[in-house]
């Protein structure tokens, strides 16, 4: 298997001088195709910062991140946007849905950016929503959906463009235990059935239970990286 994400010597320092905070200290990490990996660690350990680097949302102070063999350094903002659009799906703790769009339109939004034809766009969006169990709720706006339903829409949006990897940052933090279990089962099933690669930053033991690979971080470094 080849790595989808390759991090070499990733360092991230916020601030300067005495106020400098070393969020990441020389991380080396490969995320392989088909991984269902969890990234855990105490608050401030660098999980979110690492996810931001892997997701091409932030630039490392030193080191190199490559997605699908393509180094991110030197890429323009627009090129990074295109890379995220084509290769990465995001699931956020706060869902980050567009409030003025319906569930279907939120999912279709990514396909619109990819200039997919309207009929194909609608078919794929409805399929993705059905896959996450939201059939019949396509026309509802986020405000008319529960937190769990909104997170399902966010998962459908992350998956609809068939990305190379889905990055999830605390996706279950705002959800109750039943909804959390349903969503974790869903992501795991998608990984198992479709082979979609997941990297999930989480504190939640219910998420970690399903993980095939567990990465533990502390103080900006990888403390352990175990498969099981």
């Amino acid at each position: 298997m080849k790595p989808i994400v390759s991090c070499r010597g990733i360092t991230k320092v916020f601030g300067k001088g005495e106020l400098a905070v070393h969020a990441l200290r020389g991380i080396d990490l490969d995320i392989m195709e088909g991984d269902f990996a969890t990234l855990a660690g105490p608050s401030g350990s660098g999980k979110t910062t690492l996810l931001n680097m892997v997701g091409a949302l932030d630039h490392p102070t030193a080191g190199e991140v490559a997605i699908d063999g393509q180094p991110l350094s030197g890429m323009s903002k627009s090129a990074l946007s295109d890379l995220r659009l084509n290769k990465i799906g995001f699931i956020f703790q706060a869902y980050n849905l567009v409030p003025v769009l319906s569930a279907r339109e939120n999912v279709e939004f990514v396909l619109r950016l990819l200039r997919v034809e309207p009929a194909e766009r609608r078919r794929r969006a409805d399929e993705a929503l059905a896959e996450v169990g939201l059939q019949g709720m396509e026309g509802r706006r986020p405000s008319a959906l529960s937190g769990g339903q909104q997170q399902r829409v966010a998962i459908a949006r992350a998956l609809v463009a068939r990305p190379r990897i889905v990055l999830a940052d605390e996706p279950t933090a705002n959800l109750d235990s039943t909804t959390t279990k349903e969503l974790v089962d869903l992501m795991y099933r998608l990984n198992q059935e479709s082979g979609i690669t997941f990297l999930i930053g989480t504190h939640d033991p219910r998420v970690m239970e399903h993980s095939k690979r567990h990465i533990e971080m502390n103080d900006g470094q990888i403390e352990s990286d175990t498969r099981g």
């Binding site: 903002k77 295109d82 995220r84 084509n86 956020f92 950016l113 992350a158």
Partner: peptide, 15 residues
Amino acid sequence: REFGGLMAIGMRPAQ
């Protein structure tokens, strides 16, 4: 914050 989310999912800043 919302714009950040849109950028994350692949919308260009110019868009």
